[in-house]
């Protein structure tokens, strides 16, 4: 399944996130989340890394849940303090909805990472988007990690030159970062410039057209997955609008 066409993946992400936004009850949303996780499992994504990511978001999620459950009124009152209802069944319901919705959105977005950036360029060009634009997307996707690496290297170099970033107090840290922001940015710009030169020196955009080593082709699995997602989304949306 990891060789699903990137276009299929884009469609599935769109469908999953539409569903996540439109569904409005905790149980179906939980089901949707589990389903997304199953897809990720099929795509052989590194689960460890996902959980690490979620871990950083956890405090934020908790805060939202608490706020949501406190400020939603209605339903059975579970906890109250002098006449003020603190926790109601509706509050819990909507908090759970938000929780599963966000989890689904995050994990469906992760489907994107299972194809290489170059495949998305192909997907875009094969959707008849001009390849210059598709390449700009590639460049954004490709250069970003290169830039991050560049910045990391520089921070290491600065520390090796005697600045104890791990130990200096916060006040100084902020001063430090503002001081090095400009050189870091100019460094990244220079790198972008050099990479652009390299691309053109290898005949990029010499003709209006371009061929590709690999062409994307839908397989039967792609059709099945896409049709399945389309129907599921339509059914759910129709149910929502009709009743």
């Amino acid at each position: 399944m990891s060789d699903l066409d990137p276009r299929t993946k884009i469609v599935s992400i769109l469908c999953l996130s539409t569903l996540a936004v439109f569904l409005n009850e905790p149980w179906p949303l939980l089901l949707l989340f589990v389903f997304t996780l199953l897809i990720l499992l099929f795509l052989r994504i590194n689960f460890f890394r996902i959980t690490m990511r979620f871990k950083k978001l956890l405090p934020l999620l908790l805060l939202m849940l608490i706020i949501q459950s406190i400020f939603t009124a209605g339903g059975e009152v579970l906890i109250s303090f002098h006449d003020i209802n603190i926790l109601t069944s509706n509050g819990i319901n909507s908090a759970l909805c938000i929780l599963f919705r966000l989890l689904t959105l995050f994990s469906s977005a992760m489907i994107i990472m299972t194809s290489s950036s170059k495949d998305y360029v192909l997907a875009l060009t094969q959707l008849k988007i001009p390849y210059e634009i598709a390449f700009m997307v590639l460049v954004a996707l490709r250069f970003l990690p290169i830039f991050i690496e560049e910045i990391k290297d520089t921070l290491v170099a600065i520390q090796l030159r005697g600045v104890d970033l791990q130990r200096i107090p916060w006040r100084h840290k902020i001063k430090f970062y503002t001081r090095f922001l400009a050189p870091l940015l100019s460094r990244v710009m220079l790198k972008a410039h050099q990479l652009a030169i390299t691309m053109e020196a290898r005949a990029f955009r010499v003709y209006r057209r371009r061929t590709y080593l690999r062409l994307l082709q839908y397989s039967v699995a792609d059709y099945v997955v896409m049709v399945f997602f389309a129907i599921a989304t339509i059914v759910v949306l129709a149910r929502d609008f009709l009743y």
Partner: peptide
């Protein structure tokens, strides 16, 4: 810390461009 190590061992990267930041 890196800073403490850096004062004892002077490291020149394979690509020196990476360690110039001023």
């Amino acid at each position: 810390t890196l800073a403490q190590i850096g004062r004892r061992i002077g490291y020149v990267f394979q690509n020196p461009g990476k360690q110039l930041f001023c």
